[in-house]
Design a protein around this nucleic acid. Sequence first.
DNA 1: CGATTTATTGAACGTAGTCAATTCGGGTGG
DNA 2: CCACCCGAATTGACTACGTTCAATAAATCG
Lengths: 229, 229
Amino acid sequence: MKQNKKNCDLKSCTMCKQCQHDWLPALDANRKSFHFKKGEQLFIEGEEVKGMYFISKGLVKVHKRWSDEKELILRIARDGDIVGHRGLGADTVYPVSGTAMEPTDVCYIDLSFFNSTLRTNPDFQYNLLMFFAAELKESEKRMRNLAHMNVKGRIANALLYLQNKFGKDANGYINLSISRQDLASYTGTTYESLFRIMNELSTEKAINTDGKKTQILNAALLQEYIEQS
Amino acid sequence: MKQNKKNCDLKSCTMCKQCQHDWLPALDANRKSFHFKKGEQLFIEGEEVKGMYFISKGLVKVHKRWSDEKELILRIARDGDIVGHRGLGADTVYPVSGTAMEPTDVCYIDLSFFNSTLRTNPDFQYNLLMFFAAELKESEKRMRNLAHMNVKGRIANALLYLQNKFGKDANGYINLSISRQDLASYTGTTYESLFRIMNELSTEKAINTDGKKTQILNAALLQEYIEQS
DNA sequence: CGATTTATTGAACGTAGTCAATTCGGGTGG
DNA sequence: CCACCCGAATTGACTACGTTCAATAAATCG
């Protein structure tokens, strides 16, 4: 990671821009601007909590380890999202890691200043509270799905969720470039299982202009998989 | 459920008692006192959010349905805990249900008043925020465990967690009376699987003074199961 | 062009879920 | 007090899903 001169814009943060703007200058004075290359880690599970990150531009996966080779991706954050907030609370170590999936620019706010800013801006605190409430709901829904849906259903579900969250590009593809390995980690399954099921799900394939093959998902099958699970 | 005359005590709420006490009278004026019998539901998944519950005395499971016969227990709340807070946020329906596992007395606060009290007491809002942060951490840890641990490990884990949370009584038993069905739902497995594994885990059995049999868990095995998974 | 990683497929294995049968224990009513 | 009944406990057998391992093919990179 490297600190750069480029000014990140806190107003692009979904949570900040709904707040009274008279506090932003103070926040602005305390921010640092960082750039992370693809694959670099913003914060690491088990390390001391240092601060919060507001993503100006990029993509960050938040993941949690299990044993040496397994992990679960908890969330995929992008422009305007906040990450590192799981470091809040009594515990002073990050319970999760954050890794850039693309080159990513962030605003960084020191934890102690972040904490004090909560007190001075109840609006922001309220927004953050609502954000946590939404995250908790989502987390518990996924937890139930992990417990009771089969892999087909979880994959179908994840694809629809990601399509809904990231939208579609001009070609109708999901506006998110993610490796199969990451998609497997996101749905809580193995690379091989994901591979096989993705094949079942794509009844047709397209050849892109660059010569690469793209799988085209069958919407009806997606629905079917969810219902069967 | 029935509203009773008995005064519930908001100061017994873990979150309230850390706050400035000058707002408590206002909160106090807006509370209602309810009693729920074992098995009665405080709130139901899918229903309109009405308010928050502070448990004065009792035990409440928070659970989420999957299909008609399956559910996942997300949390077991007791004296001093708050439930119904998952109703906060943009969505106006409860994403989960709350059911009394024992006769339970609660303080009930109307949602609209609860929301306004957040604004007037930043301390309380801050405590609630930290509470949500802790819940989210816990939820995500369990999510990862559901994804990667096997059933043995999850059960062993859950038993240790519950022992840690509810403590042990004079006989060394976990201070929580929970049905096997509920324990299965809590660990995300079936009644039968839980049964078999609990048998494996208890290398000896005790006959209580009342003639009932009690399973005595083998601590070493618990540890082993967690490590193997 | 060789080397090394990533994709693809097959086969086997084990875990845990499902179904069904039986037993047990504790009421309840005759 | 006994016969009956019901739900919970207990156990066995079977099955299926998904992981794991291994082998091959394809692609990427220096």
